[in-house]
């Protein structure tokens, strides 16, 4: 009995399932190619990229970063609560995470519209072309993530005691996806707002 417990403790375990990690690795690989494209284009026209970077609203970028990081924290707290069987507590945390995602979804178009009105639309130069396309694809990830969070919220409502293995797997898969969205944004923020 004790041996089984020790074996379980030692057994390597990844949160979620291997398939979700395949998704994450695949998505990150594709985004890495986008980042390389960005750096290549930047090396071709460093001046335009620096001008473009300075034209972006750094405060807005920082706010968006903090919002997503906080949202990720809430998802992690929700996972912890759900593992303990506190479904209603997890639901509150997930709602807070959804609020964070919603803030990002509202903030981003405001930032885009401001840039377009300032004459810095996607056709302005390659910096803004990449800025709109890459942050746009990321926004699509955020929207998908919010749908996932909604399903996590529903799942949390059903958990009254310890979650089943299947529920736990779904929860961890969803949380992993939301952290992926966060991670991609961190690199985008660094590239466009700081390095550019």
């Amino acid at each position: 009995m004790a041996t089984n417990f020790m074996a379980q403790q030692r057994a390597p375990r990844i949160p979620g399932e291997v398939g979700m990690w395949a998704f994450i690795i695949s998505d990150l690989s594709v985004f890495s190619l986008y980042f390389i494209t960005f750096l290549f284009e930047r090396s071709q026209n460093r001046e335009a990229f620096q001008t473009g970077s300075h034209a972006l609203h750094l405060t807005m970028g920082v706010i968006n970063t903090l919002v997503l990081l906080t949202s990720s924290l809430f998802v992690a707290l929700a996972a912890q609560a759900l593992r303990g069987g506190y479904g209603s507590v997890a639901q509150k945390y997930i709602l807070a995470a959804i609020a964070g995602g919603l803030t990002f979804v509202i903030n981003k178009p405001i930032e885009w519209i401001e840039k377009v009105h300032a004459g810095l639309g996607p056709h302005h130069d390659n910096f803004f072309q990449l800025y709109f396309m890459m942050t746009g694809l990321h926004l699509l990830h955020v929207v998908v993530g919010m749908v996932v969070l909604f399903y996590l919220w529903r799942l949390a409502g059903r958990v009254k005691s310890a979650p089943s293995e299947r529920q736990l797997r779904f929860l961890e898969n969803g949380a992993n996806y939301w952290h992926l969205v966060d991670l991609i944004w961190l690199v985008l923020f660094a590239l466009f707002y700081l390095v550019g």
Binding site: E17, V18, G19, M20, W21, A22, F23, S26, D27, V30, M133, L137, L140, H141
Partner: peptide, 17 residues
């Protein structure tokens, strides 16, 4: 394997560009 299913979904996101 199940990961093939997830990989297919990630590929769709890549091609959407």
């Amino acid at each position: 394997p199940r990961w093939i299913g997830f990989y297919c979904l990630a590929s769709v996101l890549c091609w959407s560009m």
